[in-house]
């Protein structure tokens, strides 16, 4: 890969993922509207929302750490993005495997915790404490599923894992080859994306949108942008580990939208857990499934 193309990709990649995030966000709103017997907004409504928020004048700040932490939230997500391979761009993946990604994935959560904690709004603080509890809930099974995949494929490189799956065809996809790990990761992914029944962090009726309560204007705009990048990022992680990755952008987008449809369908028909129930569910269902999957791989039966 030439230096010029790397530079172009560094600039273009987050923008492309952001655009995909906008489409996924718009699709979610359109999809949920149809289920709810509404027409719903435009497909690119999230883009309009971001433009509106980012064009607002900032009149109130909660201090230096608040401002920095919000950038940490977005920066951490964008940094993680570079290590997740997509068709045509996997340059940085050779320098960082899944372990790097799992470390980097923590940065946005910590950034949000620092920034929201600085506002000292109790709704925000409760939201953050819930976010960290949920992190403990979904992170362990998700990491464990990766350990299982890594043990099976004898590599921690996401690129190699994709190659193995693509070489073996459909039956080599992670979800088919080791279904326990695939299902465990899928449940963890639902929590990671803060979709119901694990939508405990925002929970408008309980804590008035939690971390977002004290955010407005550009701060909220940055949170929106981060969310719009984080959604395709986390879905791509799952696609790469369990759905055979993608060899071209069409395949990638199809897998992205199919997976997203499955997750938001669950989101539409469930209420939200209490936070303790959400963590318990992760530890009682997702974690044992992942552990069984790993044991199966150790015993060479899955």
């Amino acid at each position: 890969m030439s230096v010029l193309s790397i530079v172009v990709w560094i600039i273009a990649y987050p923008l492309i993922i952001f655009c995909i995030g906008v489409l996924l966000g718009g699709y979610e709103r359109k999809f949920s509207a149809r289920v709810e017997r509404r027409i719903g907004p435009s497909w690119i409504q999230p883009f309009y929302d971001v433009i509106k928020l980012m064009s607002k004048k900032t009149n109130v700040s909660h201090g230096y750490m608040h401002d920095v932490a919000i950038l940490m939230l977005l920066g951490g997500t964008m940094l993680t993005l570079y290590f997740v391979p997509v068709p045509g761009f996997s340059y940085f993946s050779q320098f960082g495997d899944f372990l790097v990604i799992s470390y980097l994935l923590l940065i946005p959560s910590l950034g949000m915790a620092l920034g929201v904690g600085e506002t000292a709004n109790p709704n925000g603080s409760i939201g953050i404490s819930r976010a960290l509890q949920m992190l403990a809930g979904y992170e362990v099974p998700f990491i464990l599923t990766f350990i299982g995949v890594a043990m099976k494929e004898q590599t921690t490189s996401m690129l190699d894992i994709i190659r193995v799956q693509q070489a073996g065809g459909f039956w080599a996809w992670g979800l088919i080859a080791h279904p326990l790990l695939g299902v465990a990761a899928l449940i963890a992914l639902q929590g990671m994306l803060n979709e119901k029944p694990f939508e405990v962090i925002v929970a408008p009726h309980e804590i008035a949108t939690g971390p977002m309560t004290e955010m407005g204007g550009k701060y909220l705009g940055i949170m929106f942008i981060q969310h719009l990048i984080a959604v395709p990022l986390e879905l791509t992680l799952y696609i790469n580990l369990f759905l055979g990755g993608a060899s071209n952008w069409l395949e990638y987008l199809v897998k992205l939208f199919v997976l997203w449809t499955a997750l938001i369908s669950v989101n539409m028909v469930f209420g939200r857990f209490r936070v303790d129930s959400a963590v318990k569910f992760m530890w009682k269902i997702s974690l044992p499934l992942a552990a069984l999957g790993v044991i199966g791989i150790m015993l060479n039966i899955a």
């Binding site: 900032t58 009149n59 109130v60 700040s61 909660h62 201090g63 600085e118 506002t119 000292a120 709004n121 109790p122």
Partner: peptide, 11 residues
């Protein structure tokens, strides 16, 4: 810009 909660006072 007005900085509120300067010095991390309590809510």
């Amino acid at each position: 810009i007005v900085t509120v909660n300067d010095g991390r006072t309590l809510y």
